[in-house]
Nucleic acid binder design. Structure first.
Length: 900
RNA sequence: GGGGAUGUGGCGGAAUUGGUAGACGCGCUAGCUUCAGGAGCUAGUGGCAGCAAUGUCGUGAGAGUUCAAAUCUCUCCAUCCCCACCA
């Protein structure tokens, strides 16, 4: 057989025609049902794409093409996420300006993508580094600023000494800078921070509204938000007076109480010491009282020197130093307890201080053993007989005398062979919930009730309050680098004075903070109007003249001073204050890489709108995104940031829906043939251009969808690719057997076509592309056995194939005489009658083991099936001389004879 | 330490309301075809026993429920991903 399937010629031809006829241009008409299908837009790096990158794009393209054929108005756009450190570092290394590097990289990426035949409407292409785009990124930031959601912070942040910039916690990988792998430091820096924590509760709860998200991704987000409920408890310090304020109470500039966050306030009676993080203000604040300041300073300095990696090494032994000269007072029993500084307590979580309950926390236990601190058990498990007796004993003893547990008692209990009770509770007595003992008013209460009771008690006494804590931190939003969106804020000393004075005058400051989401919260001071952000951050004034363009510079290397390179441009930095006209300076920090990607999907809807971020009517029609596909690595950054921005835009009335992505699927990575990640380092990278050149875009697409389950990692196989190509060649070769006579087709092949239509449609919908292709292969294998086939039959199959292999399908479709593109066709329907089997192989089992299969009518009844089964010679052999206990009949499937 | 996912031939993987395990693809074997190379066609292909019919074992390991378990329950093991001294 002469094989004349010339993929190069075909693919070039149709790429050109599709472009000329604007086949994939998205219609602005809104009379059809819409379907918005979105890929996570790529970061155009210098390395170009490898074959793994397009896997997700192929999948969305298959879905998009099917949806087009099913009559939807499909939006399937593409763009570039191009600001940020990778390009800037690449630019510095190769001495190419980042804007030029970006342009070059985009050109390479685009050429690579175009070869694969995607349905992108390139007239809607966006680029986060285009001023017409980032104008709106800046605009969103300004709205947040104006509503009080952005604030200046001088807290120590994560600093990468190599990239010379501050980073968000999310930008770390194993405690190192994700970009360059350097050990990071903690450094106090002025930063702009976004109050994402204001949205923590909604970001958590609204996950419930997303049934079409994969559970694993939602779970990652829940863990990242990390909500825990408990209480803040105040311990007064030494001989200072107890305070009734809700905040740290400052008298003589001294902190007179220590606040801790705990999820187990019910164990308060078991607290025998306290620990503060090395960064805790108490350490510097009590200098006159602390007797061993030098020893403590040494410890704190040592802790500072340790990298984050060393500090969080779980295997290491706990260390700490007591703050001698001061004591804390446990509010529940007025016991004086020692305070330690130790680096096992983190400054960034809760209040940076803990109450230590060594009997019920493993870390506190380790520390207590090392420093010989008392251990007092206050909870016993209520799940086993054994502990119940223990409890009874304790209770009677506790009544006669407030019994103190010695370290020896507890150690015995804790190191005993794991009791059934301990196993019930995750193999540990530490975390066990149970019944409180030795806890005065809490004795005999189960954990849950004890928590409630003690919180009420604390609130009554002013010694604490119910509290919720999140692991999620506010978003450090400024970078001391060049290649990002300039932050459109201007600092004016004159306006600073006005704002500060105003701030002092107002009494209901709390009220102002609560009003932040009212769209028009404005404050008139003298002749000027201030927004909330300008009051909360005195001196900072919004620059509404957008876009604020990133100035062209020759030198964009980090300044080395911790300031952005923009700070070295006086002509850009020094401006007139847009409010009062006085001398002022621009903010020189830029936005992080994640800014543009937090809202880009909205811009595709209305990409050239000069007046608004997006037209609200258009947004109402196209939003939310129906299907979003990308890597799981974005589960906790991009996808949380984007949900946060979207909810904010919803709150200020820019968008119509409060969640941006209805359905989310993550794509499994493609590994190299050696099972490792594709990387220059291993020399195992496969370039899609070469694959497309040799086997064609269609074969590449079919293979990547056939490899295995979509979300699972899978190794590349050159032979597998050949298999996909073979399949396409078979399809190609069969066109020679087509006849115009539609009566040619056997009932069998016709029925199989209908089954295939059903299977392929359903499988694409469920992202089971591999089995969809398998079904088409089965159809083609069967079609090969037919000498002739009708034009109609073959044409219908081509429609099924077209989402996977668009070029070949289009070529064959036109060769068969169709005037219009195959993509203007209708997706075929199947006849439910033809999908059903007429005949089945009735399975006959004896004691559950297959012994015979008998051809039978599909709707055979129980009586008949049983007769048929018992009549079989093979079956007779197996039941001879045995007693039939039971006969099970499953309609359309089997007969099982149970014998003894 | 916590959370999630996965475990089936030589390989990628099918089969999940419990009902013929190994679809489909790769690889491999034999035959045909070809000057040869590549390719193509036909047949076979989980292990063991057997010329065969057939039997028997078999879905990470072990137990259990059931007429029937890859699928449900329990215990354990391994691999991967995310988070991690989170109080």
């Amino acid at each position: 057989m002469i094989n004349n399937y010339d993929h190069k010629k075909i693919e070039e031809k149709w790429r050109k025609i599709w472009e000329e006829t604007e086949l994939y241009k998205t219609s602005e008409s809104r009379d059809k049902e819409k379907c918005y299908i979105l890929d996570m837009f790529p970061y155009p790096s210098g390395a170009g794409l490898h074959v793994g990158h397009p896997k997700g794009y192929i999948a969305t393209d298959v879905v998009a093409r099917m949806k087009m054929l099913q009559g939807y108005n499909v939006l399937h756009p593409m763009g570039w996420d191009a600001f940020g450190l990778p390009t800037e570092n690449y630019a510095i290394k190769n001495k190419i300006h980042p804007s030029i590097a970006t342009e070059k990289n985009i050109a390479i990426f685009k050429a690579q993508l175009e070869k694969l035949g995607f349905t992108y409407d390139w007239s809607r292409e966006i680029n986060t580094t285009d001023p017409e785009f980032y104008k709106w990124t800046q605009w969103v930031f300004l709205q947040m600023f104006k509503k009080g959601l952005a604030y200046e912070s001088y807290e120590p942040i994560i600093w990468c000494p190599s990239c010379q910039t501050g980073l968000a916690m999310e930008d770390l990988e194993n405690g190192k800078c994700e970009r360059c792998g350097s050990e990071v430091e903690r450094k106090p820096m002025r930063q702009w921070v976004l109050k994402i924590t204001d949205y923590a509760e909604r970001l958590l709860n609204d996950l419930e509204k997303l049934p079409q998200w994969e559970e694993s991704i939602k779970e990652m987000q829940r863990n990242w938000i990390g909500k825990s409920e408990g209480a803040i408890v105040k311990f007064s310090i030494f001989n200072f007076q107890f305070s009734n304020n809700n905040q740290f109470s400052i008298s003589n500039n001294k902190i007179d109480c220590l606040e801790v966050f705990t999820t187990r306030p019910d164990t308060l009676f078991g607290c025998t010491y306290m620990v503060v993080a090395p960064e805790h203000p108490l350490i510097r604040n009590q200098e006159s009282e602390i007797k061993n300041q030098e020893e403590i300073d040494n410890y704190v300095n040592q802790a500072k020197k340790k990298s984050d990696l060393e500090r969080t090494d779980l295997a290491k032994e706990k260390t700490g130093v007591e703050l001698k000269g001061i004591k804390a007072i446990n509010p529940v029993n007025k016991e004086e307890i020692p305070i330690f500084v130790a680096d096992y307590v983190l400054a960034g979580y809760g209040t940076g201080a803990i109450m230590a309950v060594p009997a019920h926390d493993e870390r506190d236990y380790d520390f207590a053993v090392k420093y010989d601190l008392p251990i007092k058990q206050v909870v016993v498990s209520c799940h086993s007989e054994e502990s119940r007796t223990v409890r009874d004993d304790e209770e009677s003893q506790a009544k006669s005398d407030k019994q103190e547990y010695t370290n020896k008692n507890i150690k015995e209990q804790l190191t005993r062979d794991p009791s059934p009770a301990a196993q019930d509770d995750n193999n540990s007595v530490f975390s066990a919930e149970g019944i409180n003992i030795n806890s005065n008013l809490l004795d005999g209460l189960p954990t849950k009730e004890a928590k409630e009771k003690i919180i009420k008690w604390l609130e009554e006494k002013g010694a604490g309050k119910r509290a919720v804590n999140y692991k999620l931190k506010d978003w450090v939003f400024s970078r001391q680098r060049y290649w990002g969106e300039p932050i459109p804020l201007i600092f004016c000393n004159c306006c600073k004075k006005l704002a500060e004075n105003y701030k002092l005058q107002i009494t209901n400051y709390k009220q102002i903070q609560n009003s932040k989401l009212e769209i028009d919260s404005k404050f008139k001071i003298q002749n000027y109007e201030f927004n909330l952000g300008e009051i909360l951050n005195p001196g900072w004034v919004a620059d509404e003249n957008l876009p604020l363009e990133l100035p062209a510079v020759e030198h964009y290397e980090p300044s080395g001073t911790g300031e952005s390179p923009l700070a070295n441009m006086p002509e850009w930095v020094n401006v007139k204050c847009p409010k009062c006209g006085g001398p002022a300076k621009r903010e020189t920090n830029t936005m992080p890489q994640w800014a543009g990607s937090s809202w880009y999907y909205l811009r595709y809807i209305d990409p050239r709108n000069g007046k608004a971020l997006v037209d609200k009517e258009k947004e109402k029609y196209w939003s939310p995104v129906d299907l979003y596909v990308g890597g799981a690595e974005h589960a906790t950054r991009h996808l949380i940031y984007a949900r946060f921005w979207h909810k904010f835009l919803y709150d200020i009335g820019v968008v119509n829906y409060d969640e941006p992505f209805t359905r989310l699927r993550h794509v499994g990575v493609i590994l190299a043939e050696d099972g490792r990640k594709m990387s220059k380092r291993w020399g195992n990278v496969i370039n899609p251009d070469e694959v497309v050149e040799k086997y064609g875009a269609d074969a590449t697409r079919v293979y990547e969808m056939f490899m295995g389950p979509f979300s699972q990692p899978c190794a590349w196989s050159a032979n597998g690719l050949k298999g996909a190509r073979n399949f396409l060649e078979k399809v190609w070769a069969l066109k020679q057997r087509i006849t115009a006579d539609f009566a040619t087709d056997s009932r069998g092949i016709d029925s199989l076509l209908h089954k295939t239509v059903k299977k392929v449609g359903e499988d694409i919908e469920e992202f089971k592309f591999n089995t969809a292709i398998s079904a088409m292969m089965i159809f083609i294998n069967n079609l090969e056995k037919e000498n002739k086939m009708s034009l109609i039959l073959y044409s219908k199959f081509l429609i099924l194939l077209s989402p996977f292999a668009p070029f070949m399908s289009e070529e064959l479709w036109r060769e068969l005489g169709h005037k219009e593109s195959v993509f203007k066709e209708k997706w075929p329907e199947y006849d439910p009658e033809l999908v059903k089997d007429e005949m089945i192989d009735l399975v006959v089992q004896v004691n559950g083991k297959l012994r015979d299969t008998i051809p039978a009518s599909a709707d055979i009844g129980e009586e008949e099936a049983r007769k048929l089964a018992l009549a079989s010679g093979k079956i007779k052999k197996w039941i001879a001389g045995k007693e039939i206990v039971k006969v099970i009949f499953v309609k359309g499937k089997l007969v099982n004879i149970a014998v003894k």
